[in-house]
Simulated scan of single mutants.
Amino acid sequence: MKTLVCFGDSITAHEINDDDSLRLTSRVRLSFNKWNVINAGVPAETTRLALTRFQEDVLRHEPDLVTILFGANDASVHRLIDVEEYKNNLVYMIEKLGPSKVILISPSPVNENQQHARTNERTQQYAKAVKELAETYNTHFIDLWTEMSGRNYKQMLVNDGLHFNKKGYKLLAGLVIQKIEKLKKAKKTKKGFAAMAKIQKG
């Protein structure tokens, strides 16, 4: 059985929203019911704190894939983690797992009319950092910042201006599911080419 670990903060944590709608891992699990989908999200967490549980909550499961979504708290005024440290913390995770197992997800924009601990100007710096790391390490990548910015993202957030409602989780989970399906298809095609080459050599 394949194992997917969803590693992150409160946007990843929990299975059900307050309105009884499904959150990230619940939606992904429905699409990949033959996979072991593990929710490793902890509310209010930064990448610095995440490193303290990385071995126990991620590595010990020997996952095939890991989604990594942090930044909302790293970019907040009350828990601020410098962008360079943020990048270094993510690099540690990437190198321990191996780039081919990592799906980096950039943090999303916030509704500044409702959210006063974070600004889009600052949060976008963390989103750009994630994109740069994905390109440098050739990890899989979901540009959630761009995906949401290109839509009416305020309608995807609850009234704290940060966390996702049903529409937000439908988008996020859909992007994760689409990415995994694409990876599965690519792997199957690669195996097919390898088998064909073996036959031709024989």
Rank of each mutant, 00 (worst) to 15 (best):
I94Y: 01
D19Y: 00
I94K: 00
R60W: 07
I38R: 04
L80A: 13
R27G: 06
I68D: 04
S106M: 11
H78W: 11
E85M: 12
A129F: 02
L133M: 10
I94R: 02
L59T: 11
S21E: 08
R27Q: 12
W35V: 04
T46D: 11
S31M: 14
G98D: 05
E85A: 11
N113E: 13
N36S: 10
S76G: 03
I38F: 04
Y137W: 12
H61F: 08
I81V: 14
L24V: 03
A72H: 07
E85F: 03
R118L: 01
V42Q: 10
A117S: 12
L59E: 09
V28N: 04
N89E: 08
K128W: 10
S26K: 07
T136G: 10
H116D: 13
K96I: 08
R48G: 15
A44F: 15
L65N: 01
E84L: 07
E112W: 01
N89Q: 08
S108P: 04
E84C: 08
S106H: 09
H116S: 13
S76I: 00
L59R: 06
R23L: 06
N33H: 13
F32K: 02
D82V: 06
L97I: 05
V83F: 06
P99V: 01
S31P: 08
W35I: 04
L133D: 05
K96A: 12
H61K: 04
I94W: 02
Q124R: 13
N73I: 06
L90H: 12
D20E: 13
T47C: 11
P107L: 01
S26V: 03
S108V: 01
K87I: 11
R79I: 07
V102D: 05
V102C: 08
N111G: 02
